[in-house]
Nucleic acid binder design. Structure first.
Length: 364
RNA sequence: GUGGUUAUGGUGAAGGGGUUAACACACCGGAUUGUGAUUCCGGCAUUCGAGGGUUCAAAUCCCUCUAACCACC
């Protein structure tokens, strides 16, 4: 269940009720692909105040993970996290592992990148598996296309994803868990509209907007988000999948998007790239060698309260794993704080000024 | 002291007369958008221990010196 509490223009502040809790939106989900935020413990995550994380069906289907989770009882019990989890369906892997996958009307066949084992994903078995995992929110299996695909090919793909969505909806049994459809349509407005309208008719508990941030321009991405949100129901949450930079998030919230996930804060942290209130910085840069300053003097995260740039740079260059942990804590704190600021701003009707400030600091 | 071996960037090293001195690591930048990310992409020796010579051409050949290592006195 989803309720809108306040709005400012198209931006929305709301509450999403899921099996394991109530979530305030707009929200950001840290990415725990294989059941952990890389470099963090669940204790770190809780200290950060994360309320929901994202895990991936594809990665949780490899090795003998399904049996391990079954033995533990549920994904939550297996990974030691009792707050909400959203699982992605593996649709993105059809896209990113496309040289290892075969698509048919029936579903997608993957060859595991780990041991070469053949995996068959269908709308039905992916839905069943996510229910078995106990995901508070599960996504339908879809096909995600890259930028630059012809309209004809995109149309076929949208139709395939829609038929998969319909089958996924039928395959759903556990009504405690929310199921989201995913709007596709590449960079074609009519196809985006068709996708949004047909999915709406299937009455999902929420809607993903997929197939964006695949190399297209910011303007195109904005246009596609706008078309999708225009044709999705007001009373359901919209989740922009895999996006993005702070600026992307601001722009999308302004268009009425409620949920986000992105590897950017975590992956960038592991590669030394840090988000701060005054823009991005790279901890490897020599200018930080002797700096006794925290990463961001306006930040009250664990890392900024306790460590200098000089120390963090030293750890990073020495390849100490703690460097990744500390930078990940900082970047996730930054993203979660951004979302808190956004929610507060919408409630106080000051979202435009927050938005223009963020867009000024992060101009991409 | 005598004989031998070696000397190439921050490091380990290729190259044994023909013209832009390989490669790796380190270092310095940059990228990163539903994670196949301890990833990817750039930059980094006008110069080969020092000095002299041979040659159209020398890091590469010759001589002297210096240094390090090994063996013998």
């Amino acid at each position: 269940m989803f309720e809108l509490i306040s709005t400012q223009d198209k931006a929305r502040y709301g509450r999403l009720m899921v099996k394991r809790g109530v979530l305030e939106t707009p929200l950001f989900m840290p990415v725990a692909t294989a059941g952990a935020i890389k470099s963090l413990t669940q204790r770190d995550l809780e200290a950060l105040g994360a309320n929901i994380i994202l895990a991936n069906t594809y990665h949780l289907s490899l090795r003998e993970v399904p049996q391990l989770i079954h033995q533990a009882g549920s994904l939550h019990q297996f990974i030691g996290w009792d707050k909400p989890i959203l699982t992605d369906s593996g649709g993105f892997q059809i896209f990113s592992l496309n040289n290892l996958t075969k698509l048919s009307q029936e579903g997608a066949s993957f060859r595991s990148h780990i041991d070469g084992q053949m995996l068959h994903f269908t709308p039905e078995n992916v839905t069943a598996y996510q229910e078995q995992l106990g995901s508070d929110i599960h996504m339908v299996l879809d096909e995600c296309l890259e930028d630059g695909v012809s309209k004809q090919r995109t149309k076929e793909s949208v139709d395939l994803s829609l038929s998969w969505a319909r089958r996924s909806r039928k395959a759903r049994h556990n009504l405690e868990l929310l199921q989201f459809g995913i709007v596709q349509g590449g960079m074609y407005p009519e196809l985006r509209k068709q996708s949004a309208l047909e999915l709406t008719a299937m009455d999902f508990e929420g809607y993903g907007i997929g197939g964006l941030s695949v190399g297209e321009s910011k303007d195109k991405m904005t246009d596609m988000i706008e078309i999708a949100t225009e044709h999705l129901p007001q009373n359901k949450p919209r989740y922009l999948m895999g996006v993005g930079t702070p600026a992307d998030i601001i722009r999308a919230v302004a268009l009425g998007v409620d949920m986000f996930d992105c590897v950017m804060p975590t992956r960038n942290a592991r590669n030394g790239s840090v988000f701060t209130s005054f823009g991005r910085l790279n901890i490897r840069n020599q200018e930080h060698k002797f700096s006794g300053e925290p990463l961001d003097s306006n930040c009250d995260c664990y890392t900024c309260r306790n460590h200098t740039r000089s120390y963090l740079r030293h750890l990073f260059l020495a390849k100490e794993m703690t460097a990744k942990t500390l930078l990940t804590i900082h970047n996730l704190h930054f993203y979660l704080k951004l979302m808190t600021d956004i929610r507060t701003a919408i409630q106080e009707q000051t979202f435009p000024s927050l938005a223009s400030h963020i867009l000024r600091v992060f101009n991409r």
